[in-house]
Simulated scan of single mutants.
Amino acid sequence: MADTFTISVPRLHTERLTLREYRVADFELFADHLSDPESSAFLGSADRQAAWRIFNSHAGLWLLNQAGWWSIEDRQTGQLVGSVGAFFRHGSSVMEMGWNTYRAFWGKGIANEAAAAVLKYVFEVRREPKVRALVSAGNESSRRVAERLGMRYEMTTELDGKEINTYMRERG
């Protein structure tokens, strides 16, 4: 008999947002975001095939680690506005956070609001001792989000050939 898995992606709510599981219907906007040179300037762009792998990888993290990525939905309109995650990078025992807001919604505080909800979840529900964020050098918007979350610059390193700044925050 085959093993049966039940995966439950926790829903998080803020004043304006719902953080929820990825859905196949979310893929089009996700792929558009990754193919847009301006939106993906710090992430690296991806064609549809690569975007599909990334999308499925994000969703599949929940199965493997009980942590992963959420789609960010505007509570008032139901519109998809980005994604946010709390996950473990391969080989790391430190939880990592990431956030992306789709370009049409830049400058509206969505990344701040969604990431703050995830940070609360990481510390209060998961009881993780610390969390980090990897922010591409030059990505001032993401740097500001990390700093608003109380994360402090730790060091500069390299990831996939790109200069990355590591920000860290401990529970407390």
Rank of each mutant, 00 (worst) to 15 (best):
Val122Ser: 09
Trp99Ser: 06
Gly107Ser: 03
Ser45Phe: 04
Glu96Met: 05
Arg89Asp: 14
Asp36Tyr: 13
Arg48Pro: 02
Phe87Met: 07
Tyr167Glu: 05
Ala146Leu: 05
Phe105Gly: 03
His90Gln: 11
Thr156His: 08
Gln79Val: 11
Arg126Cys: 15
Phe87Ser: 06
Ile72Asp: 02
Ala59Lys: 06
Glu140Lys: 13
Asn56Ala: 13
Val94Ile: 13
Arg20Gln: 03
Thr77Ser: 15
Leu17Gln: 05
Asn165Lys: 07
Ser93Tyr: 07
Thr77Asn: 09
Leu19Phe: 00
Val122Phe: 10
Glu73Val: 06
Phe123Val: 09
Ser92Tyr: 05
Ala137Asn: 15
Trp70Phe: 02
Trp99Phe: 09
Ser142Asn: 05
Asn139Lys: 02
Gly161Pro: 10
Val94Tyr: 06
Leu43Cys: 04
Leu64Gln: 11
Asp26Gln: 05
Lys120Asp: 14
Ile72Asn: 01
Ala41Asn: 13
Asp36Ala: 11
Arg132Val: 13
Thr6Asp: 13
Asn112Ser: 15
Val135Lys: 02
Thr6Gly: 04
Ser142Leu: 00
Ala67Asn: 14
Arg127Lys: 14
Ile7Ala: 08
Gly85Thr: 00
Gly85Ile: 00
Arg126Tyr: 09
Arg48Gln: 04
Glu128His: 14
Gly60Leu: 01
Phe27Glu: 06
Arg53Tyr: 12
Ala115His: 00
Leu159Arg: 12
Gly78Glu: 07
Glu15Asn: 11
Gly82Ser: 03
Thr6Tyr: 12
Arg169Ser: 06
Leu63Val: 12
Met155Leu: 09
Glu170Leu: 12
Lys162His: 12
Val24Tyr: 12
Asp36Pro: 07
Phe123Asn: 13
Leu43Asp: 08
Trp62Cys: 07
Gly91Val: 03
Phe87Arg: 02
Leu149Ser: 01
